Simulated scan of single mutants.
Amino acid sequence: MNIVAIGLGNFGASLAKILTSLGHDVLGVDNDLNRVEFFKDVVANTICLDATDPHALRLLPLKEADAFVVCIGNDFGISVQIAALLKKFGASRVICRENSSIHLTVLNAIGVVETINPEYESARIIAQMLPLKGIQNLFSITDSFKIVDLLIPDFLIGEKRSVISFRKETHLKIIALKRNHRLIYSSANAAENDDKIEIEFKENDTLVLGGELKDIKRFLHE
């Protein structure tokens, strides 16, 4: 994808760097030349530009970019101004960082329907992870259905289970098993009869599971 990230603060720079590492064509934009210079080696492309200036903004690939992400969160007015200009100039997809209900309401009012609140999202994820011992990452599919990756629990070390028996016992689906940074098992690559193959769990394995939160909790407290 061709993505323009406007604002290279902590969030914007992190987003631009990760997208670049994933192979996307990223243009990082900031009005601070020092930031632009600092990140030029880790973001695909960077440019120093005042995105609140309509004439300067027109220099960006408004029609070619697949998405513009306005990463500015500490200045309500500037964020809305840039988003409004992008919508006016016909950017196909505008995603904005927001940091309050008022900010969100104004963005929605000018036609921005995709928003990000990284502070809230981080807090929500951490709040869900805290009671779950050993969880490294958690992804919410719905309020109750989660995908988690965790260090193999002590009670599983040395055990052998088939994928189908594991699911029957725990009501959780094994999505992947990683060992020493290598993928040992992946449900995406599994053959039709792969459920009959036994997996031996070893110390320091990482297990990726999908299922209801109540079943994940029950599994972790065996």
Rank of each mutant, 00 (worst) to 15 (best):
F39K: 03
F39N: 00
R58A: 08
N34R: 11
N34P: 07
P54C: 08
P54D: 06
A67P: 10
D50W: 12
I47K: 09
R58E: 04
V36T: 06
R58N: 03
L60M: 03
V36L: 07
V69F: 02
D53W: 09
D50Q: 11
D53G: 07
D53M: 10
P61Y: 06
R58F: 04
L62M: 05
A65M: 05
A65G: 05
F38Y: 14
V42I: 11
L62Q: 03
D41N: 12
A51C: 09
I47C: 01
D50R: 13
R35I: 02
F38R: 15
N45D: 12
V36Y: 01
L62H: 07
F38S: 08
D50T: 14
A51F: 01
I47N: 04
C48F: 09
T46E: 04
E64P: 11
D50V: 14
V69T: 14
V43D: 00
T52K: 15
D53L: 09
C71Y: 04
K63E: 12
A51P: 11
L60R: 05
A65K: 02
A56Y: 07
D53H: 10
N34V: 08
L57W: 01
N45V: 08
L60C: 01
F38C: 05
D66A: 11
R58L: 11
F68P: 00
T52Q: 15
I47T: 05
K63G: 08
V43K: 00
H55M: 11
L62C: 06
T46R: 06
A51N: 07
C48T: 09
V69E: 15
V43L: 02
D41P: 00
V43Q: 01
A44V: 15
D41I: 08
F68Q: 08
P54A: 08
I47R: 08
I47Y: 11
A51W: 00
A44D: 15
I47S: 01
K63I: 00
A65P: 03
V36M: 07
F39Q: 01
A51R: 03
V36H: 03
A65W: 00
L60E: 02
I47E: 04
V42C: 03
A67H: 05
F39W: 15
R35D: 07
A51T: 14
V69H: 07
T52G: 06
L59F: 09
L59G: 13
P61C: 06
C71Q: 10
R35T: 02
H55V: 15
R35L: 11
K63S: 13
D66Q: 11
A56T: 13
N34D: 14
F38V: 04
R58S: 04
P61I: 14
N45G: 13
R35C: 09
E64I: 15
C48Q: 10
D66W: 05
L57D: 01
C71I: 14
H55N: 10
